[in-house]
Amino acid sequence: MTAPLLEVETLSKDFRAGGHSVRAVDDVSFMLRQGETLAVVGESGSGKTTLGRCILRLEEPTAGRIIFEGNDLTHLNAKQLRPIRERMQMVFQDPYTSLNPRKRVRQLIGDVLRAHGERDGVRIQARIAELLDDVGLRPEHAGRRPHAFSGGQRQRIGIARALALKPKLIVADEPVSALDVSIQAQIINLMADLQDEHGLTYLIIAHDLGLVRQVADRVAVMYLGQIVEQGASDALYRSPMHPYTEALLSAVPLPDPEASAGRRRIALKGDLPSPINPPSGCRFHTRCPHATDLCRMAAPPPVAHADGRQVACHFPRNADDDAQDRAMAALDGWQPQSTPRSGAAA
């Protein structure tokens, strides 16, 4: 097993908004091995985009550590980050705003190379041509501005820009959610091809579980800033252990109408609670069909289960016989808080 390329340890990010402090990312830990694809999924507002931006230090994490290729990035300044930026890049969500409308493709990519010390014009042009070819665009596209391209083509340009510095890790923030469904598959296939070709490691942020299943080796499910479940994607899809994962999976449309009709759809009650005032105990208890008094009082710590699965739930579903014991054992020594917050009254 290869050494982890990226380790994220107890990462938190607070935003201050109108006197309130919002914890967008709360104590998130995971790691990512070389060549692997990890998908972070969750509803809007679950903090997945913030998580991705914190990893590239586009947002300053409030607490925790980001370790990339053995280096702690958390406290590097802008200058120290520059060489790291060559190793990790980002693909953005909205291809309509992520490319500067005034720049031609040649500049969009060339500026990146120049910012990292390439001065030889011939080599820059050659590299641009190579990158455009890599992402399936034609050389003559280099002279056009973004408005001349369709959404899918723009996303290809965004990918070419991210690849320009030959990174190891690419954080892709909802890379296809702004695209038509027919184009989504093309972009996902392109990303998969590029992964094979260049040995890339992906952190893909997404909300479409059907799509994630095709590309991800592992999946991390986020809810209100916390990772509630993570594990190998096949196992996680086959037998989700956290009730939230279970509900999310039950909402994925199935192509087979009979299978779809026979399936039990878990409809969650209510909306995502406000992260300004998150529920006590398990954050999911307000919407969980299986919540008990314990869930309302005690936050379940992430517990390791078989096959590298990690679940933060007192009563994991679809689990082996010992899973329940492990979940309870993790609570050893837990005392009810002296001032229980709302919802803990029972």
């Binding site: 980002m90 409308p101 005034r102 910012a115």
Partner: peptide
């Protein structure tokens, strides 16, 4: 608020560079 500014940050453009050559022309 547009992502191209963030993209400029992500590829390591300096702050004056982002202000003058990314944002200002727009």
């Amino acid at each position: 608020a547009k992502e191209y500014v963030l993209a400029g940050k992500a590829v390591g453009f300096s702050t004056p560079r982002i202000m003058l050559s990314e944002i200002a022309p727009n």
